[in-house]
């Protein structure tokens, strides 16, 4: 089945309207992009979109009740709900330093972005 995906490229402020034509999981054509990075991004968006995930987790005895964290690398979009459920079970104790790895999930590091 042929399918056309349309979206606004987010690589730079130009915001090109990119179209990606796909058949049976294979990219047939990319249109509307202005640069190779945009094309690469658009293909990735269609084949296997990934996102950096951010959240807060509770911290005991910290100056604030939570510490913010992010994944050290983008994770596949469809895995995000599973990751969030995993993160819902995590608690840490102060002190936490910015950059500390507070957990690991399927090889992805969960890194503190705020100290506590």
């Amino acid at each position: 089945m042929r399918k056309t995906y349309r979206f606004t490229c987010i690589i730079c402020p130009l915001g090109c309207s990119v179209e990606v034509e796909v058949e049976d999981g294979k990219v047939l054509e990319v249109r509307g992009h202005t640069c190779p990075r945009g094309k690469e991004w658009a293909v990735q968006e269609v084949i296997s979109p990934k996102r950096v995930v951010m959240t807060v987790i509770p911290v005991e005895n910290g100056a604030l009740p939570t510490v913010s964290v992010k994944t050290s690398e983008p994770v596949p979009k469809e895995k995000i709900p599973e990751l969030m459920r995993f993160l819902a079970g995590i608690k840490v104790k102060a002190p936490v330093n910015i950059g500390d790895v507070v957990a690991e999930w399927n090889g992805v590091k969960i890194v503190a972005t705020r100290g506590a």
Binding site: T55, P58, T66, R85, L87, A88, G89
Partner: peptide, 8 residues
């Protein structure tokens, strides 16, 4: 609830 209430 706390921020994880719905996920839990």
């Amino acid at each position: 609830g706390d921020v994880k209430a719905l996920l839990r």
